[in-house]
Simulated scan of single mutants.
Amino acid sequence: MNHLLKKWLGLGLLMGGLPVVAPAATADDSSRVRQAHRRVVFQFDNRYSIIDGKLVGINGLKLAVEWKGRLRAGAGGYLLSNGIPSQEEVPTGLPTGTTAELRFRYVAAYAEYLFIRSNRWELSAPLQLGVGRFFTSFEHPDGNKSKDAKSTVWLLEPSASSHFRVFPWFGIGVGAGWRETLFVDHSLDEALDGPIFYGRVKLFLGDLYKTARFKRKLFSQQHFRYQN
């Protein structure tokens, strides 16, 4: 008995010098654990806006690096999902029946600070600084296309964003902000300045994979409960 007790004491002293690892049940779900020091974030950033007085969709892709679950920084690219019918008259010299559409595309660097990040909620403030081109595309009756001179546009987009996890692998999000053009003619100010807003569904693929791998209940809430 004494010999067995000495072996257990020796093992206890050895374990006391090793780092403590959280149990697997609490460390395999990204909705509950502290995020890694750095990680890459990829996002489809599709939104709506008002351009030239019309509601339009803007498709975007963003790639960023996240530090300690609080700060993200990266870049993205955006373009209109469809052209906007122009309210201006078609320039003289083009064939009768020519139609005109406004086109807008830009790239942006962005930073985003996460004010709140819990197992359920995320609230952040993204800020984007971008540069792009705004131009009119003409389609002639015979199907040929032409463009007018492109205008370089600088823009600033502050906004607020949030999402809520309904399940560990599924969430819903909303966001709103403002697009302000810089160093452009007054006419472009009026056409491009305006609100931006979106609602989106978010899939957390890592947690969806773990749900399937570990045969968890798909709509379970148990991984949102903290363990003491």
Rank of each mutant, 00 (worst) to 15 (best):
M1C: 13
N2R: 14
H3I: 12
W8I: 13
L9Y: 07
G12F: 09
G12R: 06
L13M: 13
M15Q: 12
L18W: 02
P23S: 11
S30N: 13
R34L: 03
R34D: 09
A36F: 02
R39S: 15
Q43F: 10
N46F: 05
Y48P: 00
Y48R: 02
I50H: 01
D52Q: 13
V56F: 08
G57E: 14
G60S: 10
K62Y: 00
L63I: 15
V65M: 07
E66L: 07
K68Y: 03
L71C: 00
L71R: 00
G74R: 04
A75N: 03
A75W: 03
L79G: 10
G83R: 14
S86R: 11
V90S: 11
P91G: 04
G93N: 13
P95N: 07
G97A: 05
R103T: 10
F104T: 00
R105K: 06
A109R: 01
A111P: 02
S118I: 08
V131R: 11
R133S: 13
F135L: 11
T136I: 03
E139F: 12
P141D: 15
D142A: 14
D142L: 14
K147E: 15
D148L: 07
K150C: 01
L156M: 02
P158M: 07
S159E: 03
A160M: 05
S161R: 10
F167M: 12
G171A: 15
A176R: 04
A176L: 05
W178Q: 06
R179G: 01
R179F: 04
L182Q: 03
H186D: 15
D189T: 09
L192T: 01
L192A: 04
L192E: 08
L192Q: 06
G194N: 06
F197Q: 03
Y198E: 08
K202L: 10
L203G: 00
F204Y: 15
F214I: 01
F214S: 09
R216G: 12
L218V: 13
S220D: 14
Q222I: 11
Q222A: 13
F224K: 08
Y226H: 12
Q227D: 04
N228D: 07
